[in-house]
């Protein structure tokens, strides 16, 4: 394994136990940093607004990204459309710390993802199940997150994806070695990655929860289900008091096993984002790029 890839996996290690927040302006980035975000994700519109506005969602304006890089000292991530390696080249030229090849944006390629091994900057990719996670890793992703359903404020899909990934990991772990070849075929992933999961009982990279986290309780739930950290997008800046809610979610991730503390954190947070129930969703972002 090349050294750059190891370094990129290691940055994700440093983000563990943290909260990564979506921001659309340098001002929001500062609020996120002050609230204790371990990184920010620069994007044009937060997922809830992408849903609201419709149309094609693309990589953010480099000027906005640079403004955010200057505003904060924590790592800055940004999103590119699935398969849009030219957008990724631009972000690498801006020296972004992490690229999210994201189904939240309109996919640029409906067949191929980016060959992430060609880049020096790290990539995080979304996954709904173990096969998808391992396919992204074999393409060069150095961090995985659940897809969940962005911009809905409904945690049900993130829960489903995290439970499924963890369950499939446990299944691989318990298989006989001679069953792993068939498992690789069924999952449509390289055999060596299946062996890694069998031996280690975890993904070879850090796995965060994303998509639908709106409350400290949601964040604690995802951590208890096995997430190593949490992405929060619309849940913060679509709520009544973003700074307070952001801080509460950061503390809930650190002490996800302390219900008494989370009870205190959940008090008086103001309005949570309204959200959309699963049955009311018109556009399923999680179905993009498998």
């Amino acid at each position: 394994m090349n050294q750059r890839y190891e370094l990129n996996k290691n940055l994700a290690q440093m983000l563990k136990g943290g909260v990564i927040m979506d921001v659309t302006t340098p001002e929001q980035a500062k609020i996120a940093e002050e609230a204790g975000a371990c990184a920010v994700m620069a994007l044009e519109k937060i997922p809830a607004d992408i849903r609201g506005a419709g149309g094609v969602a693309r990589m953010s304006d480099p000027k906005m990204i640079k403004g955010i890089q200057e505003a904060v000292s924590i790592p800055v991530m940004a999103k590119v459309r699935i398969g849009h390696f030219a957008e990724a080249q631009i972000l690498q030229a801006l020296e972004i710390d992490y690229i999210d090849e994201s189904e939240v944006l309109s996919p640029a390629d409906d067949t191929y993802h980016i060959d992430k091994t060609k880049f020096d900057v790290p990539f995080v990719c979304g996954a709904k199940d173990l096969g998808e996670a391992l396919r992204r890793i074999s393409e060069g992703a150095s961090m995985i997150r659940t897809k969940g359903e962005p911009g809905t404020g409904d945690v049900v899909q993130a829960v489903r994806h995290m439970r499924l990934i963890m369950k499939q990991i446990r299944q691989l772990q318990n298989m006989r070695e001679d069953e792993l070849y068939h498992a690789a075929k069924e999952l449509q992933v390289p055999y060596d990655l299946v062996c890694y999961v069998h031996e280690n009982g975890k993904l070879p990279v850090v796995n965060f929860a994303a998509g639908g986290v709106a409350t400290p309780a949601d964040a604690a739930l995802m951590m208890q289900l096995g997430a190593e950290g949490v992405f929060v997008g619309s849940g913060i800046f679509k709520s009544g008091d973003p700074a307070k809610r952001a801080q509460a979610i950061v503390k809930a991730v650190t002490n996800y096993n302390d219900p008494k503390l989370i009870a205190e954190l959940s008090e008086d947070l103001g309005e949570a984002m309204v959200g959309i129930n699963e049955q009311e969703i018109e556009l399923l972002m999680a179905a993009r790029g498998v």
């Binding site: 290690q13 440093m14 983000l15 002050e34 204790g36 371990c38 790592p75 801080q247 650190t254």
Partner: peptide, 15 residues
């Protein structure tokens, strides 16, 4: 440990 010093510093104080 390693991580984000801003995050750790903040949580050390608030907790």
């Amino acid at each position: 440990p390693g991580g984000e010093s801003t995050v750790m510093g903040k949580l050390l104080r608030e907790l």
